[in-house]
Structure formats: structure tokens, C-alpha cells
Design a protein around this nucleic acid. Structure first.
Length: 395
RNA sequence: UCCGCGAUAGCUCAAUGGUAGAGCAUUCGGCUGUUAACCGAAGGGUUGUAAGUUCGAGUCUUACUCGCGGAGCCA
């Protein structure tokens, strides 16, 4: 029996019930819903040590030929039946962990005087220009897009409220067919006035530690269902290793891998680096060339951006991307022009530098990637109730 | 967009170029302190689509469709 709070074994003994009740019990196929009256007994043979000895059984909803059997199934079949797959023990455990991660995210920021700040989902501009956007016609105003990040709006919020965070769905029409991509995924993006890159990294580190500890504290049973090696999560404590991009390149070189300064780290590179540590690794100060226009340059080396990527352990890859933002009006305008972005759309964004600009920083954490890592599972499609992927938008 | 792999019963998979099978599920019968129960029986197929090679194609060839993994890009 499953009721949403847990599982209980229930026994219907021929000798303890009427023949009518026994007949009803015989009709209870997999996933039928029913009401049972009985006596709870201690029973060492039952999982959990207790079972319900039924005296009466009432059928509520029959379930004929339930498609998902206790045997093995393929991925396509299971996702076609996602609405039913969610009932299985493993999926229930993942959804409970998702809830815990989301709750711990809100608690973390709420307890540190951040204000939840909701950016629009429909936007007229591309925040980074590179990614593909979901496009729509917006009445008489031309094209509009589904947001791929609330960051630019969060910056406006930070200048109004000091410390803010956004938390909601974001959309990317990237044609990525991998176990790390969804077209609709959730992101949390804190943005803080007067934070420099070091402050930003300190916060990210404390944040990740908090989330993992919260799951360990409340979801041990769920992690057990997933057969997660908990000892790996117990090691997630500050401080996390911090490497500059140059340090990372050196590690790759020492490992005998061909590297070229100025190129972004590939997935294989990230795995090599993260496998050298048992904690998340923070890689900072990438070449500005390969990073977004809004990132501030390192005053000590203008070729570098004041940015950070956090790589999850065990090869789970990037879960956080963040930076200190460019706060100088002229420099930011220059970047927008260099990237050939429509200046008109960014007028409001430039205003943030025109009227009382302050140094500020922030980062974005991908919810599903984080859950995938914490759960120790191999595909992020299981971490959201109804995944949206390049070749699937049903059920 | 590119590279690789795949598509056979409701599901998971077998089948040297030679009569398309098993386990599970379903139905029927039996048995049972089970927890992926067990024993017996039955039904269930245009082998993704189209063309080609061949005496003969699930198997070989070509194209297409769909799916999976990866690269790039990203959280």
C-alpha cells in the first residue's frame, strides 16, 4: 500500500475475512486504489517491521492491465508513461528530494535577507545572444521570447533591494540531446549589490553546502531508495577548491591533454578536473572572449572575466555559472556593441549603470542538474515531473 | 548541424540468408507468509516505412521516419 506518506505491507488472510472480502482482494491488481480496515501488527518478515492484517477491503478504483510492471522497461516506454511512472518508488524518492532542494534554496536565501524577485518569463531580448530562444509573436510589438535567464532583471532588483533572488523556469531552444539538457528547466539566480567575485564564490559555496546538508538531514530514506552513496555527499563541506582557468589548463596539461588557451573547457575536461577532488570545484577567471558580454573584466588582466563555474563532483559537470557584472556604463555599452546586440533593447539595462551604479555579482544554479548530482542518477529527465526535451513535449 | 548505436508480441529481449521464439504481462486452472512469488495451459506478430539484391530477407544494400548516447552550446 502507498498513500503518499510511505509504504505498508498489507495481508489478507482467507481465514480472517469473509469470502466476499477475499474476492475483492483478489481483484486488486497493480495500482488499484482501495480502502483497508485492519489491525497493525509488528511483523519481522515485513519490510519496515510492521504490516496491516486486513479485516475488510473496499475497492475504490480498479486498475486493469497497468502498463508498468515490476520488470525492466526501456527509457522511451517509461517517458511515454511518465504520468504513471511518477508513482514508482524511485520517482517518488526523486520528487521528494526535488522538493527538499527547492525548499532549501528558498530557506537559504530567505534566512539571509534576500528578497524573492520574479522576473518576466516573456522578454524582448536575448540575455546572452548565443543560445537559441523560443520565439513567439507578441501582438503588434513583433517578436518576443521565452526567458533563458532572469539575471538582467535580477540586477535591476539588486539595485532596488540589495540582495534578491529569482527562482523559476527558464527556456533554451538549444538542440542538445544529452543527459544534461532540458529545453525547460528551473534556475535560481541570486544577485547581490556590493558583492565582488570573491563574495559571490563564498556565497555559492555556502549555498551548495546548505542544500546538500539539508537533503542529508531530511531525505536519507529517499537517498537509500536511489542507492546513493551517501558518504560522497557527506564530504560536501566548505571550503571548496578554487582554481583559476589558468590553473585548470595546467592540470589538463599535466594530465597529458592537449589544451589551447582561450578555449572553453569541454565536458571531458571538466570531468578530469572534477575527478581530482571530492568536492565541487570552482573554476574562475575564464578568458573574457568566450564569456558573456555583461561580465566584468579582471582589472589585473583585462583578458580575463571575473566569472566562476562550479563543477559538481563525480563527473556531473557544471551546476553553477556566475560572475561579477560590468558596472561601468561606457565599458558595458562597448561590449554590447562588440557583441552586435541591439542597444535599444538594453537601454534600461544600461540605465542601471547610469544612475548610481554599484559593483554587483550573482550566479545561476540549475535545479535539475543539482538534483541529478545529489540523487546520483544518470539522467536529469527524471528530476522534473514532466521533462521537456528537444524531441519530446508529451505527456 | 555533426558522429555513433538502435527499432522484432503489451513490456524487456533472442533468432548462421532457410517454418519468428523466451521471460514478464494478460486470460483460465492450481498452489502459496509473500515482498520482481511459484506450477500448468491458452491467446497474442504485415519484424519502423519504402524500394532493391536473392530460389528465399527479421538478417544483406539504399533512402526515409522515429528513438537513444555523445560533440558543439549550455545550467
Amino acid at each position: 500500500m502507498r498513500d503518499g506518506t510511505g509504504y505498508l505491507q498489507c495481508i489478507v488472510f482467507k481465514g480472517n475475512v469473509t469470502s466476499e472480502v477475499f474476492e475483492v482482494a483478489e481483484q486488486l491488481h497493480q495500482e488499484a486504489s482501495y480502502e483497508v480496515t485492519g489491525i497493525v501488527k509488528e511483523e519481522p518478515r515485513a519490510v519496515g517491521g510492521y504490516e496491516l492484517d486486513a479485516t475488510d477491503v473496499k475497492l475504490i478504483g480498479a486498475s486493469e492491465e497497468y502498463p508498468i510492471t515490476p520488470k525492466e522497461h526501456g527509457v522511451e516506454f517509461l517517458i511515454d508513461n511518465r504520468h504513471l511512472w511518477l508513482r514508482s518508488k524511485r520517482q517518488v524518492a526523486i520528487m521528494k528530494i526535488r522538493h527538499r532542494v527547492a525548499k532549501s534554496i528558498r530557506d537559504f536565501f530567505d534566512n539571509r535577507d534576500f528578497t524573492l524577485f520574479d522576473p518576466p518569463i516573456i522578454t524582448p531580448n536575448a540575455s546572452e545572444g548565443t543560445s537559441t530562444l523560443f520565439e513567439m509573436e507578441y501582438f503588434d510589438l513583433g517578436k518576443a521570447y521565452l526567458t533563458q535567464s532572469g539575471q538582467l532583471y535580477a540586477e535591476a532588483g539588486a539595485l532596488a533591494l540589495g540582495k534578491v533572488y529569482t527562482f523559476g523556469p527558464t527556456f533554451r531552444a538549444e538542440k542538445s540531446k544529452t543527459r544534461r539538457h532540458l529545453t525547460e528547466f528551473w534556475m535560481v539566480e541570486p544577485e547581490m549589490a556590493f558583492y565582488d567575485l570573491d563574495d559571490d564564490m563564498d556565497l555559492a559555496e555556502e549555498f551548495l553546502e546548505y542544500i546538500v546538508k539539508s537533503v542529508l538531514e531530511h531525505n536519507k530514506a529517499d537517498l537509500e531508495v536511489l542507492e546513493r552513496d551517501i558518504s560522497k555527499l557527506e564530504k560536501i563541506e566548505r571550503p571548496f577548491p578554487r582554481l583559476s582557468y589558468d590553473d585548470a589548463m595546467q592540470i589538463l596539461k599535466d594530465e597529458g591533454h592537449e589544451v589551447e588557451w582561450g578555449k572553453d573547457l569541454g565536458a571531458a575536461d571538466e570531468t578530469i578536473i572534477s575527478n581530482k577532488f571530492d568536492k565541487p570545484v570552482m573554476v574562475h577567471r575564464y578568458p573574457a572572449e568566450i564569456k558573456a558580454f555583461y561580465m566584468k573584466r579582471d582589472p589585473e588582466n583585462e583578458k580575463l572575466a571575473l566569472c566562476v563555474d562550479v563543477l559538481a563532483p563525480e563527473g556531473y559537470g557544471e551546476i553553477i555559472g556566475g560572475s561579477q557584472r560590468e558596472d561601468d556604463y561606457d565599458k558595458l555599452l562597448g561590449r554590447i556593441e562588440e557583441h552586435k546586440l541591439p542597444v535599444d533593447f538594453f537601454k534600461w539595462y544600461l540605465d542601471l549603470r547610469k544612475y548610481g551604479s554599484v559593483p554587483h555579482s550573482g550566479f545561476g544554479l540549475g535545479l535539475e542538474r543539482t538534483i541529478t548530482w545529489i540523487c546520483g542518477i544518470d539522467h536529469l529527465r527524471e528530476t522534473i515531473p514532466f521533462p521537456r526535451m528537444i524531441y519530446r513535449n508529451t505527456p
